[in-house]
Design a protein around this nucleic acid. Structure first.
Lengths: 180, 180
DNA sequence: CAGCAATATGCAATTTATTGCATATCAATA
DNA sequence: TATTGATATGCAATAAATTGCATATTGCTG
């Protein structure tokens, strides 16, 4: 159950609504943690019951209401306890690799198409990450120190995407070779 | 629901019991797909009901009974259909990265410990993969052709592990720098 | 010979995640 | 002015995964 901790982590950085969290999952944490809006709202409800978080209701006449969530002391404690604890490694589930493994059953042209698409989306992702890195590296020393840890996760993204692309190139080269 | 397809993939290569599949998940597919024995047995039961697989019961006097599962035509078809279909990308869930993201709350020494452990286990994994690769590269051309697609998944493992290690080194270096 | 690891299978309860549905406003655009 | 996309929230049903328990044999080791 670590969506809980992912949410605590996000709220620790900045208060926000469920929708804000969704956006932050998509934009920032998205590379290493994902959650649907249904999951997030449900989890927030549970965590509120558990008193890990609290919210201020912002009633607006024109727009729909907002619940701005904040960490409680208890939530802050839960987070720092979790951060201290060693974690068991998460399970990998990569359907593309299962598919490649069974690749002798697939149409090679189609597989090639899919791999090209895979490579290109990872290239785009890499470009996005590099742009964020650039921004970081051009920010003030103070800002850099503040964001040092999140920056390291960005580095994971960059290194990971490069690995994806490198592998995709190998697969593409192989698929083209056997076609010829 | 792709545990189903992972199991179909394994059975397509070779028939086996639930336990065999568990071992093959651990040993071979483990890098990119994981499943507990409870999950596997439950899934096998469901798939049998769906007529995707069948089994021969091997009653043994001395040892506990075995159910040796095989693909049915229907299962084979399901697999090849799945392999044809483009897949949506799976969701990443990497708790370590969430933890690093919230790393300013953590004890840095402990984090360093954890990262060293992380790096070393990935180094060991890489060694394992390289040994398997070596075996592959020294096998006959025929064998190599047969295992070409699984070999590409192994390459993913090797490239992925190298990326893990590279990143871990960066994090370790950073943690040591701020300690000094 | 007692205990433990490996083989071999499974149920039940609970937790987590997905899928589908539902509502409501605002701003832009066609 | 009608539609779409973004904001903002949620319920209900189902599917998938985890956790805990349970059984039974073989072979090895201390």
């Amino acid at each position: 159950m670590s969506l809980k901790h992912a949410i605590l982590t996000l709220l620790e950085t900045e208060d926000g609504t469920g929708y804000d969290l969704l956006k932050r999952f998509e934009d920032h944490l998205g590379y290493f943690w994902n959650a649907s809006h249904q999951q997030i709202y449900a989890q927030l409800k549970t965590m509120h019951k558990e008193a890990l978080i609290d919210f201020q209701l912002e009633t607006q006449d024109d727009k729909p209401d907002k619940k701005i969530y904040t960490l409680t002391d208890s939530g802050r404690q839960e987070l720092s306890e979790w951060v201290q604890q060693p974690l068991k490694l998460g399970k990998v589930k990569d359907a593309l690799l299962v598919k490649i493994y069974a690749g002798h059953l697939a149409d090679k042209e189609q597989l090639l198409e899919e791999m090209l698409h895979y490579r290109d989306s990872h290239k785009r992702m890499l470009q996005t990450f590099l742009a964020i890195e650039d921004e970081y590296l051009n920010s003030s020393k103070k800002k850099q120190q503040e964001l040092a840890m999140p920056y390291l996760t960005l580095r994971r993204g960059i290194i990971g995407e490069r690995a994806c692309i490198e592998w995709a190139e190998e697969v593409i080269q192989y698929l083209r070779k056997i076609r010829a």
